[in-house]
Design a binder for these strands. Structure first.
Lengths: 143, 143
DNA sequence: TACTCTTGTTGGTAATACCAACTAGCCGTG
DNA sequence: CACGGCTAGTTGGTATTACCAACAAGAGTA
């Protein structure tokens, strides 16, 4: 176990804090989703489709899920009128998934509620601290 | 919508970073869990029981899940020999859930792998930055 | 044209999680 | 002491999530 390369004791502190914060964050997300009768994954799909229109495969890759899982998710969301499957003119097998008007509104509401739910936590920080936290967090996954 | 109290634009930045980081973190946790044929929740149960022995109700409250959900989780984990139900001498209906030897080892291995999986991200930060990040994260939920 | 790869769906299974209903044990009042 | 109410866990039923394997249909290439 290559000492000097494993997680040092200082790192453990960060890792713990990160995991704890992540669970709290996920809790907020899950609660917001549940308030609209959505699962966390469905809320995530809406959030993704808010910016990009995506194919089934892209959604699967982005979420790290099997394509067949996406089929089911999109099925149910489509039945609820949140999104729509659109044929891809460039590729007969491919499909584009796009939000409906209702889906767009729901995605916006959800995003706002997530922000609101987390604001309670974030408000404990000063503006400068908040910015520093954001920077540090972003640097985590952009080495 | 009550300006001055809602999520300001500066906050949005943090919220986004936090949500992104949380999903990455959860991804690591889920992968570690899956490597041991555990769900994320089961890994969490092991992590909790590593420190405290708990009743079913405490587990449910801590995880924010229904008691019946815990019954099933504990059922399966017990069948796998990871933990054990122990009668509570002080309360005939209550039950204590404790890790077995195997469960303790698995919890330790899991924790180590989570730390290792996240170390890759955290290593991009200096020791001082890491400490600052940990402090800021902890202050999020301890106002 | 024939072969292969990709895209998405279907069918089958296990696990997660909920609710409602239930059992069993605790506890306070009368 | 007995009775009603409360708490702790379990059970049964259902919907959803997610996987894998097998498939149909289109795209691309030899």
């Amino acid at each position: 176990m290559a000492p000097g390369q494993g997680a040092g004791s200082a790192d453990l502190e960060v890792v713990d804090a990160l995991v704890r914060a992540s669970f709290v964050t996920m809790g907020v997300l899950t609660k917001v989703a549940a308030a609209h009768d959505l699962s966390l994954t469905q809320l995530r799909v809406l959030a993704i489709l808010r910016d990009h229109r995506a194919t089934m495969g892209e959604l699967a890759a982005y979420l790290g899920l099997d394509r067949s899982t996406i089929s089911g998710l999109v099925d149910r969301a489509e039945k609820r009128g949140l999104l729509q499957r659109v044929a891809n003119p460039d590729d007969g097998r491919g499909i584009h998934v796009v939000l409906t008007e209702v889906g767009v509104r729901l995605a916006a509401t959800g995003a706002a509620q997530v922000a609101e739910g987390l604001a309670a936590s974030v408000n404990g920080l000063s503006a400068a601290e908040a910015r520093r936290l954001a920077t540090l967090l972003d640097r985590l996954h952009a080495p």
